[in-house]
């Protein structure tokens, strides 16, 4: 194509594996479904005016069903990613970010980049320090919402998995001071995740626009490009 030409010396490679990308998008879709259904469960925004002549309506039950289905999808994605981070060989570039994360100079340089006063720092891992800590916080939020979610789940479904989790659910309930508080925390954590998602999407777009390194494409195709250093 006409607009394509040799552009300096770029090097490329797979930044995110297929499994990584799948879990990211499963998680992303789950989050949106969970928010929409969760708001309904909290305060049902669709209701009927008249009773049904036959008892065949299950609107709330269906919202709950989808909430639970995507809830477990989210749990799967988060667990996969956690195991991936700590144990998968291809996550070694992610694990390399831990060292960067404790480099205060690098952290300030990254903040400086967003304040438009310093250059983007060169990191050894795939995440910059600011990003690493933001994601760490995100995992605290995810595990918080998963734990409170499972506690609420076990209280409704007393058999099978719910039954197995029941003692755990009870300890969560005791820790937070009652089932009502479990519900309140679940709701608060959702808001924290909403805010995280908005900032996350902005940062991803920002880096794609100004980084010009396929940063956004990496989460779709896995490919990341960088200008070679000489």
């Amino acid at each position: 194509m006409k607009f394509l030409k040799v552009l300096g010396e770029y090097i490329g490679g797979i930044e995110f594996s297929a499994g990584y990308r799948w879990q990211h998008w499963i998680r992303a879709i789950s989050i949106f479904v969970l928010i929409a259904t969760g708001f309904y469960l909290a305060n049902p925004y669709i209701t009927y005016g008249a009773p049904s002549p036959t008892p065949t309506r299950f609107l709330h039950a269906e919202f709950r069903e989808w909430h639970i289905i995507f809830g477990f999808a989210l749990i799967g994605a988060v667990l996969y990613k956690t195991i991936y981070f700590f144990f998968f060989p291809e996550a070694k570039y992610e694990r390399a970010s831990i060292k960067d994360a404790f480099n205060i100079k690098l952290l300030f340089q990254q903040i400086g980049y967003y304040l438009l006063i310093s250059k983007h720092p060169k990191t050894t891992g795939v995440y910059n320090p600011l990003q690493f800590w933001a994601y760490t916080l995100a995992y605290v939020l995810f595990y918080g919402i998963i734990i409170t979610g499972l506690a609420l789940y076990a209280e409704v479904y007393h058999q099978g998995l719910g039954g197995a989790l029941y003692p755990f659910a009870k300890s969560v309930e005791s820790f937070l001071g009652g089932l009502a508080y479990v519900r309140l925390w679940h709701h608060i954590l959702m808001w924290a995740i909403i805010i995280f998602v908005v900032v996350h999407v902005y940062m991803a777009v920002y880096n794609a626009v100004f980084g010009k390194n396929g940063g956004m494409d990496a989460i779709f195709s896995g490919m990341k490009w960088e200008k070679e250093e000489h």
Binding site: N43, P44, T47, Y48, A50, P55, R57, F58, H60, A61
Partner: peptide
């Protein structure tokens, strides 16, 4: 009525008379 998604919106309303769920 809870599982059906049938909720009372206002006290004294038609839904309340129908014995809908009081969750809302």
């Amino acid at each position: 009525h809870f599982d059906a998604g049938e909720f009372v919106e206002e006290f004294g309303s038609e839904e309340a008379m129908n014995g809908f769920c009081l969750y809302k």
